[in-house]
Design a protein around this nucleic acid. Structure first.
Lengths: 215, 215
DNA sequence: GACTCAATAATGTATATACTTAAATGCCGA
DNA sequence: TCGGCATTTAAGTATATACATTATTGAGTC
């Protein structure tokens, strides 16, 4: 970290560290493996361990539950369920859930922080993957919160873009038409099975995604 | 992952796994600690190990070097250096670099992918932290690429917002005035020392940040 | 000079053991 | 019934040891 050892520099072998610190090789190995996992070192069998060349900024983006996030800011959270419909997957649904079809729940809702709209959400939930979702009252429990607490997931992909608010979005978020919004799309998997697709729109001036990374 | 064990469920003790799999407790411990670190389990001394309640979506956002990113898309990368100025930190600079002042480099540049502008960048580099930067020709090497390859960093914070392109931004990115853009701000530290601040603007319709998470 | 192949040295991984630490548990007395 | 205290149990961690794996090295041969 001091920069004394440049990327590519070969650091002492595990046995040398063992000798230097008077501890066992297992302990050294544990420490080095942690640094390898953190991306600071790279190790190659037989060759040794090297200072890694950072290839990109890796940031841990923590996308919290909206209800928790609003609560953490000391504001009152309110949910408005616009639409909740059970239907067979259409072609467009299939493209988003990437599944083979089947029944799904299509939900539209608005999240409020205090008096102001916080986010608009459109969501599809696969009823093949989560049949219990059919019985949940999503006018009380935000769909994201319910899913996070009840359905384990193994993989998720997020896509962040900026869009200009068209008329319905501008009305929903109470911002000027054409103003910039953050669009956060999320696909969630459990194994091979698609669980849910969500698209959340946040007003650009009032919202920021923050990602922090500590080596 | 099958969902059989709900969040909060207490899983077998390390000794029980040891007996079940016929391996040593160290091996079990290693596996469980990996799952704890991945956020799937939570362990408490004396009490046992439990299925963790996922609190948020943690996504690994990898923010690559712009030059590499453009190259990876098979497009020709070009850099246009708009301004590169050495100056003493002003009050505004201090607010961004959060340092005690001193000399810095203020850089403005445009990244091109093929014929189209890819991003606008404004950057401050602390010359206290990185004196070598004064000698680099940033009309050839993008400042981000140079820093990534030459200066180790220990901490970084990213802030993603959406903004409407004002006239100079719209001109620079060759988009319509008022169209939505992604603003990516980044603060980079080495220990306590601030290295650099960067603000990159991407056209919202042409650019997406993608974050992937695999448990 | 180039190729082959065996020796070697480094990491990768598993194990038995031992001790530490802290929190849940239950006993006991007020 | 409640609070405090000792007990105990489960995770946390360190160590010595052993063997596996594999890329590099270098010797030997063509």
């Amino acid at each position: 970290m001091s920069g004394e050892w440049r990327p590519g520099h070969r650091i002492p072998t595990e046995n040398e560290w063992t000798a230097a610190y008077g501890c066992s090789r297992m302990t050294v190995n544990k420490a080095l493996r942690a640094l390898v996992q953190a991306g600071l070192l790279e190790s190659r069998k037989r060759a040794g361990t090297f200072v890694a060349a950072p290839r990109f900024h890796r940031a841990a983006l923590e996308i919290p539950d909206i209800r928790d996030e609003v609560g953490a800011q000391g504001l009152a959270y309110r949910l408005e369920l616009v639409r909740c419909e059970r239907r067979e997957a259409t072609g467009a649904d299939r493209a988003l859930l990437q599944g083979t079809g089947g029944a799904l729940l299509a939900i539209q809702c608005r999240h409020f922080a205090g008096a102001l709209p916080y986010a608009l959400e459109e969501r599809l939930i696969s009823l093949d993957a989560v049949p219990e979702a059919a019985a949940v009252d999503f006018s009380v429990e935000p769909p994201g919160s319910w899913l996070l607490g009840h359905v384990p997931w193994t993989e998720a992909e997020h896509r962040i873009t900026a869009i200009s608010a068209a008329a319905p979005v501008a009305t929903g978020l109470e911002v000027a038409e054409g103003s910039a919004c953050i669009a956060l799309e999320r696909w969630t998997w459990r194994g091979e099975e698609r669980i849910t697709y969500a698209r959340q729109l946040y007003p650009g001036e009032r919202y920021a995604l923050v990602a922090h990374f500590r080596a």
